[in-house]
Amino acid sequence: MVNQELNQSKYVTLVSSDGFEFVVLRKAAMISPAIRGMLDPKSKFAEAQSGRCHFPEISGLVLEKVVEYFQYWYKNKDREEAPEMDIPVDMCLELLTAADFLGLDNAT
């Protein structure tokens, strides 16, 4: 029996409501409990098979910032002091909504 984790791509694709696609390092995207659940091979979700997660409720602009956060988090996760991440004030509400949906408010 082949280990399913060995068959998984190093990257996943996140697709926004307006069709923008973002290719992200799988390990970085796994900070989101929602994405982790979608990609779990045991879940039998289509996303686990395809490595593509569709978010019909998140726009491309917001998902781009979420992806930027995933990369920021992955790069700085072991640092005691990380540089500040720029978050546009006009996107705060949408980013909070997306973060809540993705479970990032509880992520460690």
Rank of each mutant, 00 (worst) to 15 (best):
V2I: 06
Q4K: 04
E5L: 05
E5M: 02
Q8V: 00
S9N: 13
S9F: 09
S9R: 10
Y11F: 15
T13H: 05
V15E: 09
G19D: 14
R26I: 04
K27W: 01
A29Y: 02
I31E: 13
S32P: 07
P33C: 07
R36K: 14
G37N: 14
L39F: 05
D40H: 05
D40N: 10
P41N: 04
P41D: 03
P41F: 05
K42N: 07
F45Y: 11
A46C: 00
A46T: 13
E47S: 04
E47Q: 09
A48T: 11
S50K: 11
I58Y: 09
G60E: 14
L63N: 08
E64S: 14
E64V: 08
V66T: 03
E68M: 10
Q71V: 10
Y72T: 02
K75S: 10
N76Y: 14
D78Y: 02
D78H: 03
E80Y: 09
E80Q: 12
E80M: 03
E81G: 00
A82W: 10
P83G: 03
D86M: 07
D86V: 08
P88D: 04
V89E: 15
M91Q: 15
L93V: 15
L93M: 11
T97W: 08
A98F: 13
A99K: 05
A99W: 04
F101D: 00
D105P: 03
A107L: 07
